[in-house]
Design a protein around this nucleic acid. Structure first.
Ligand SMILES: [Mn+2]
Ligand SMILES: [Mn+2]
Ligand SMILES: [Zn+2]
Ligand SMILES: [Zn+2]
Lengths: 144, 144
DNA sequence: TATCAAATGATTTTCATTATCAACAATGAA
DNA sequence: TTCATTGTTGATAATGAAAATCATTTGATA
């Protein structure tokens, strides 16, 4: 598995070790395509190893983020979520305010305009967060 | 003051009352152009009335938001901030990751593309949050 | 094997925000 | 005015996510 190798490499580069727990957490993380909260992931990992501590889940998610395997997603609801980063290009999110369904979107023209906007104000961009909130077609149909 | 009238109208429409505390909090809020956290505003209001409670500040900021006078801003640093909404059109934020300075920006073309992107996926937009993170010219100069 | 840093899980702590609640104040019939 | 009703407030407790603490265990290596 490519990701595990990357993680091991990342760890050893910083004098850290691959452990059983970290392996389980990585596997659980890779095993879901959801935007998963530490708490949710803790629930998943627990099924494989009931003795794992939730602090370890928090800690490992931070490490995965630094290793470039995970990415933090903040929908603004008070919980931090994580999504796959390796092999998953940057994208933004569109969220339905009624059913909380969300889809991943990218618009290259927007990305380009963001760069230009930054340049206009003398900024060099390091990243951005864009969340589009609305009502999905499902929910609009249901209401009608 | 236009804003105070709006607030009074908003309150009475919902069977609520304008009070001394709410008036002070509104004044303090209008008196600053910063993106202010409840805690910061609490500090400001306290100078005028040392007996005011911070719960009242939290409560009033929620009310101001519902009344369309304030708007929540979430820079993702764990504190919710509020900015003026009345007479201040929508805008997005560009934040320097080094000095935390931030400027307000709008790009009509981006706004337009966001609408189109939403339509493409069957969403009707109700709002969006866009934060551009980067390094400002000041900070880049300082480093060099 | 002895040493020492890293890792873990349980637990406590922090911090922002919300809920609770008793005391108080405004409103508006009667 | 009196009285009941309802909104308001401030102090305080509760909540919930995340981070810090710490004693103990584990692993690498000299
Ligand atoms: Mn995503
Ligand atoms: Mn602003
Ligand atoms: Zn929906
Ligand atoms: Zn700067």
């Amino acid at each position: 598995m490519k990701e595990k190798d990357i993680f091991i490499r990342f760890l050893s580069d910083r004098g850290l070790r691959m452990t059983n727990q970290r392996g389980l957490i990585l596997d659980a993380f890779l095993g879901t395509e959801r935007h998963v909260s530490p708490e949710e992931l803790y629930g998943l990992v627990r099924r494989k190893d009931g003795t794992i501590g939730q602090a370890t889940v928090y800690r490992t998610l931070k490490l995965l983020t630094e290793a470039g395997l995970a990415r933090e997603v903040d929908f603004g609801d008070g919980v931090l979520r994580y999504e796959h980063s390796y092999g998953h290009e940057h994208h933004d999110h569109m969220i339905c305010e009624r059913c909380h369904r969300h889809i991943e979107v990218v618009d290259e023209r927007i990305e380009e305009l963001q760069e230009r906007l930054a340049k206009k104000y003398g900024f060099v961009l390091t990243g951005h967060r864009m969340y589009l909130y609305g009502i999905c077609s499902e929910c609009r149909r249901r209401k009608a």
